[in-house]
Amino acid sequence: MRTCGGYSLTKYQRIYSIVKQIPTGYVATYGDIAILADLPGHARLVGYALHALPPLSDLPWQRVINAQGKISLGKTFPGGELQQRHLLEAEGIVFEANGKINLRHFRWQPKR
């Protein structure tokens, strides 16, 4: 477990702390979040962590997309793709005709 200020952080907490930093109008991939949370190769764990959020969470979960620039909520969250798309569009993120987000333009690049 990693520590922060003397407190140990679970993997989910590390993921949430990174997702919280994604600014409005930008997205990150599941893999990006895994790397930034010191969990390289665990993009699926990021998805599991976001799926475990309580329904009224204020974490900007909608800003996490797949490596192809697409929304990928799966079938466990009916209507979630449309909700995520609306939230992202409200932040100024543009979807191309093929349903993808241009990662060159909208991908969050945190300063290390």
Rank of each mutant, 00 (worst) to 15 (best):
Gly41Leu: 05
Lys70Gln: 09
Leu59Asp: 04
Tyr26Met: 10
Arg112Thr: 06
Phe95Lys: 14
Gly74Gln: 08
Val46Met: 12
Gly41Val: 03
Ala28Phe: 00
Thr24Gly: 03
Leu87Cys: 05
Pro110Arg: 09
Ile71Met: 02
Ala49Cys: 13
Ser57Arg: 06
Arg14Val: 05
Gly80Asp: 13
Pro110Lys: 07
Tyr30Ile: 11
Leu73His: 00
Pro40Ser: 12
Gly79Asn: 15
Pro78Lys: 15
Gln84Cys: 05
Asp58Ala: 07
Ala97Thr: 08
Ala67Arg: 07
Trp61His: 09
Gly6Gln: 15
Tyr48Ile: 10
Ile93Phe: 02
Gly69His: 03
Ile101Tyr: 01
Ile33Pro: 03
Val64Ser: 05
Ser72Ala: 10
Glu91Met: 10
Tyr12Met: 07
Gly99Cys: 04
Gly25Val: 06
Ala43Leu: 05
Gly92Ala: 10
His105Thr: 15
Leu87His: 08
Lys75Phe: 01
Ile71Trp: 00
Gln62Gly: 00
Asn66His: 02
Arg44Gln: 13
Cys4His: 11
Arg107Trp: 02
Arg14Thr: 04
Glu81Pro: 05
Gln84Trp: 03
Leu39Ala: 15
Ser57Trp: 07
Arg104Phe: 01
Trp61Asn: 00
Pro23Phe: 03
Gln109Asp: 04
Gly47Val: 03
Leu39Asn: 11
Gly41Ser: 10
Pro110Asn: 04
Asp58Gly: 02
Ser8Phe: 10
Leu45Met: 13
His51Lys: 13
Ile93Trp: 04
Trp108Tyr: 09
Pro55Arg: 11
Gln21Met: 14
His105Asn: 02
Leu45Cys: 11
Gly31Arg: 01
Asp32Pro: 04
Arg112Asp: 05
Ile93Asp: 11
Ala37Leu: 12
Trp61Gln: 06
Gly31Phe: 03
Gln84Pro: 00
Tyr16Phe: 13
Ile33Asn: 06
Ile101Ser: 06
Ala28Glu: 00
Ala28Cys: 07
Phe106Thr: 14
Val94Met: 07
Arg107Glu: 02
Gln84Met: 09
Asp32Cys: 04
Ile22Pro: 12
His86Ser: 07
Ser8Asn: 13
Cys4Lys: 10
His86Thr: 12
Val94Trp: 04
Tyr12Phe: 12
Leu36Lys: 14
Ser57Phe: 11
Glu91Pro: 04
Glu89Gly: 08
Arg112Ala: 06
Pro54Gly: 12
Thr3Asp: 09
Gly5Asn: 14
Ala52Phe: 06
Asp58Asn: 09
Thr29Arg: 05
Gly69Tyr: 04
Leu45Gln: 09
Gly31Thr: 01
Lys75Asn: 11
Lys100Asn: 13
Ile101Gly: 01
Ile18Glu: 04
Gly25Tyr: 03
Phe95Thr: 14
Thr3Tyr: 07
Trp108Gly: 05
Leu45Asn: 10
Lys111Asn: 14
Gln83His: 12
Thr10Cys: 08
Tyr30Thr: 15
Gly47Ala: 12
Leu53Thr: 14
Gly41Ile: 06
Ser17Gln: 15
His86Ile: 07
Asn66Gln: 02
Cys4Gly: 06
Leu9Arg: 12
